[in-house]
Computed example of a mutant assay.
Amino acid sequence: MSAPAPTTTTVKEPDRSRHHGDHRPEPPGGTFAKHLRRNLTAHGFLIGAVICFSLFSWYPMVREFLLAFQKTEGGRTAWAGLANLSTVADDPAFWQAWRNTLLFTVLALVLGFAVPFVVAVVLNEFRHARGYLRLLVYLPVMLPPVASVLLFKYLYDPGYGLLNELLGFFGLPAQQWLQDPDTSMLSVVVAATWMNMGGATLIYLAALQGIPGELYEAAELDGAGLFRKIWHVTIPQTRLILSLLLLMQVIATMQVFVEPFLLTGGAGPEGSTTTVVHLIYQYAFNFNDYGAAAALGLLLLVLLAGVSAVYVRLSRAEDE
């Protein structure tokens, strides 16, 4: 019986062409096309958003910048240089509008920045009916501005207004809230604060609910009272939200238009409620001087950009 023939094992050499010889680079744009096909829906939504921003945000900004240095007369547009800036600077209402805008900003920061925070701290202490209280606080934001203005016009009415009725009940003289230059701006600020404080209050309330309860317990063990807990625990823990909302408050109040326009017609008694944005409105739609309106808007843009840059610089320095 013969021995079986030895079997030979064939060793298969690795396919080196897969890694070396046959590796061809992807065609230009292949990776992008692959990702584009994979995320076609996402890119579609992104392209739609970019188109919307381009048409309704970026293009008007570029157009305003060009209009600020152009003059249109008789249907013909010519380059005017700094003439539009000189026109608005020589207007007596220019400096009054800036003073009124700064006054509104300061008063709105005193009321509109502090009051929502205080209301949020009070709401955070409630353990029951918190949802209904949130709805009650946010309700003014959901009302149409015209409805809110009609409400405050009734409150401020010099004849039968509720505020003057209350003053009469306590034996105090009636006030011309919107007709007196000394009280018109403060009256507008109170109305604007009531109309817009709901959103800030809910943001503050969300930030307060994120503070660990152990911090308050440790503060109580150290003998801290209510105000010391707010100063040493609440404010430091919500510092980021406070600073961000402060910036947003400054930007929003510097562009105030709706409340003075609806309550006092824009200018107010003796121009006491004329703001920069209302002056832009007058240049554009009353005087048909779009170049001057764009120049004034450009000045406001530069100022707000400077405020934002200062905020970013301070935030970075504080983080470092």
Rank of each mutant, 00 (worst) to 15 (best):
M1G: 07
S2Q: 06
A3P: 00
T9P: 01
T10L: 12
H19P: 01
G21S: 14
G21K: 13
D22R: 14
E26T: 07
P27T: 15
T31E: 10
H35R: 08
R37V: 08
G48K: 12
S54F: 09
P60Q: 11
M61Q: 14
V62L: 15
E64D: 09
E64L: 10
L66E: 14
A68S: 15
T72N: 10
T72I: 10
A80F: 05
G81N: 09
V88T: 06
W95S: 14
N100G: 13
T101P: 04
F104N: 03
F104W: 05
T105I: 03
T105R: 05
A108P: 00
L109S: 09
L111K: 06
G112Y: 01
A114R: 04
A120P: 03
V121C: 05
L123I: 09
N124A: 10
R130K: 09
Y138E: 02
G159H: 06
N164R: 01
L167S: 12
G168K: 10
F170G: 07
Q176W: 12
Q179W: 07
S184F: 02
S187H: 06
V189W: 06
A192S: 08
M197R: 07
M197G: 04
G198Y: 01
L205D: 00
A207S: 14
Q209L: 08
E214N: 12
Y216M: 01
E217A: 14
L221K: 13
D222E: 15
A224I: 00
R239K: 05
L242N: 10
L245M: 06
M248D: 04
I251T: 08
I251H: 05
M254P: 01
V256A: 11
E259Y: 04
T264M: 02
T264H: 03
G266Q: 01
T273N: 10
T273V: 12
V277M: 07
L279P: 01
Y281A: 00
Y281S: 11
A284L: 08
A284Y: 02
F285Y: 08
F285K: 08
F287R: 14
A295M: 01
A295P: 02
L300K: 05
L301H: 05
V302S: 15
L303G: 03
A305Y: 13
A309D: 08
D319T: 03
